[in-house]
Computed example of a mutant assay.
Amino acid sequence: MTSNSRFDQMFPLGEKNDAYAQYFSGQSYLAPLTAGSVPVSNVSFEPGCRNNWHIHHGADGAGDQILLVTAGSGWYQAEGEEPISLEPGTAIRVPAGTKHWHGAKADAWFSHVAFITPGDGVCNEWLEPVTNEEYDQLPTTAQQA
């Protein structure tokens, strides 16, 4: 396990995710794990941090996002669906074209490994933030869904 003063997890915390800060509420961290045709990154979220609603696009089976939860406690929600509590060992496949968000619970750090299935037309569309009103309705770690 990698240990730092913030959070114990199996992969590096990485640097502050400043390049994408405009698409997050709160502080996230990014640690690229592999490069090449299928870049894989460890993304960590401070308590309460979450990304904006967004959609991954792709054609002919490309553009699915895979999230493999490695540490902490978080949320995933697809538009129109109930939020899913994320704990280490949870794997989520987000089909291309699905509007969704993911991030930490209000009182817990959270980390997942993320990658996108490669192929034609792969791109990301960032949308509106998850409002505090939406987020504050979710249970905290102490009262899990």
Rank of each mutant, 00 (worst) to 15 (best):
G97R: 07
A145R: 12
E133G: 02
T34L: 01
K105Y: 01
H100Q: 14
G48Y: 07
G119T: 08
L67K: 10
N124I: 12
L67H: 09
G103Y: 08
Y76G: 05
F45Y: 15
F115V: 02
E15F: 05
G119P: 10
D18W: 00
G74C: 05
Y76V: 06
M10T: 11
W101T: 12
F115E: 02
L127H: 11
E82Y: 01
L86M: 11
G89E: 02
S73M: 05
V69Y: 00
G48E: 10
H102E: 03
H102K: 03
C123I: 00
E134V: 02
I116Y: 07
I55M: 11
S28F: 01
D120E: 15
Q9S: 13
E15S: 14
S111W: 00
W126C: 04
Y23H: 15
P47H: 08
I66A: 09
P118T: 02
Q143N: 15
L86V: 03
E46T: 15
S73A: 14
I92T: 06
T70Q: 06
A108F: 03
S41W: 00
P32S: 02
M10H: 06
L13R: 13
G97P: 10
A145S: 14
P95M: 03
A21V: 04
R6P: 04
P118A: 13
L68P: 00
G119D: 07
A142M: 07
A114K: 04
V69G: 04
P47M: 09
L30V: 10
W53D: 13
L13T: 10
V40F: 03
S28N: 07
T70R: 00
T2S: 10
Y135I: 10
V94W: 05
Y135M: 10
G72P: 06
L127I: 11
V122S: 06
A108M: 11
W75D: 07
P129D: 07
S5V: 09
P83K: 00
R50N: 05
Q137F: 00
E87N: 11
H56T: 13
G61D: 06
N51P: 11
F110T: 07
C123E: 14
H56R: 09
T2P: 06
D60R: 13
R93P: 04
Q27G: 04
G26Y: 01
A104W: 05
W109E: 09
F11E: 02
N52V: 12
P95K: 05
E128R: 11
S44M: 04
D8Y: 05
L67Q: 08
N17W: 03
V94L: 05
D60A: 15
T34G: 00
H112N: 11
G80L: 03
D60Y: 12
H100V: 08
H100C: 08
T117R: 05
G63R: 12
F45P: 06
